[in-house]
Amino acid sequence: MQTPVEPTSTALAPESFELVRGTSLWQDARRRLVKNKLAVASAIVFSVILLAVLVGPAIIANTWGYTYDMTNSEVVYQPPSAAHWFGTDQLGRDILVRSLIGGQISLLVAVVASVVSLLIGVTYGAISGYLGGKVDEAMMRFVDILYSLPDIFLIIVLLAFFSKDLIVLFAMLGAISWLTMARIVRGQVLSIKNREFVEAARAIGVSTPKIIFRHIVPNTLGPVIVYTTLTIPSVMLTEAFLSFLGLGVQPPLSSWGTLVQEGVGAISVYPWHLIFPGLMMTVTLFSLNFLGDGLRDALDPQARAD
């Protein structure tokens, strides 16, 4: 963490300190982030994609009247044109709309998994770390057990067994995504719980849950934010992988994984079918990863040394 700079001279009267407006940790981090050109560019690119994915389908439906599941046998396998910017697929569906809808699904999966990882992972890790001792031991061994399960294999089996329902996919990705978060938060809490301000909080009679969630968890936010921004792309990739195998999102709904899978079949003749959704996914993943790296450098400048 940061080492506070202390005035070395006592000649400086306490009164003169109020003239200096200090910066908060957040302001400091923001300044470092803004200096990181790659991170800023990534943030902008990601915002544009996010905006397009969210409002794009509605605009297209209003302008051209295409929806993601509207087939048209007269415009099968069209190359990119003014009417269909990204071209059309084997059923004459507009690939731009399908890519945007696919983006919605991919991002939704990622967000759900991240929220689960935040809620369960942070709570679980914080409780385990703060209580310590046997409770910690038991809770962390449980995480170890889940960790050691071959998760992708498990997801494939469960998706094949139950149904290829989106809900099952969400639940499964959520269930595996909180494990690392729990470990990260626990480690942070272990180092924070012995700090004096925690003892001071106990000394004024604050209850254990309040100490954990008001005094300790906010101090772990740096690593938590960083890990979350890196979870989102990794979950998106997993979803794409499962959809590519035909186990994730089912047609006519699309995700980037599904679209890429459809595109691969026709790659030599109709390359746009693969290139455009693939490009959108790649750009999104790149920008999220760069943004995550930038946030890590901004929130934890000392970790940069290596």
Binding site: M1, P4, E6, L25, R195, E196, F197, E199, A200, A201, R202, A203, I204, G205, V206, S207, R214, H215, P218, N219, L221
Partner: peptide, 25 residues
């Protein structure tokens, strides 16, 4: 019962004021 006494009837100040305040709040 002890929590109700800590801070209300018996209060404590610590050695190092640098680390006794939560830096995030």
């Amino acid at each position: 019962q002890m929590r109700a006494i800590r801070g209300k009837r018996i209060a404590m100040i610590f050695q190092d004021p640098m680390s006794s305040l939560n830096p995030f709040l």
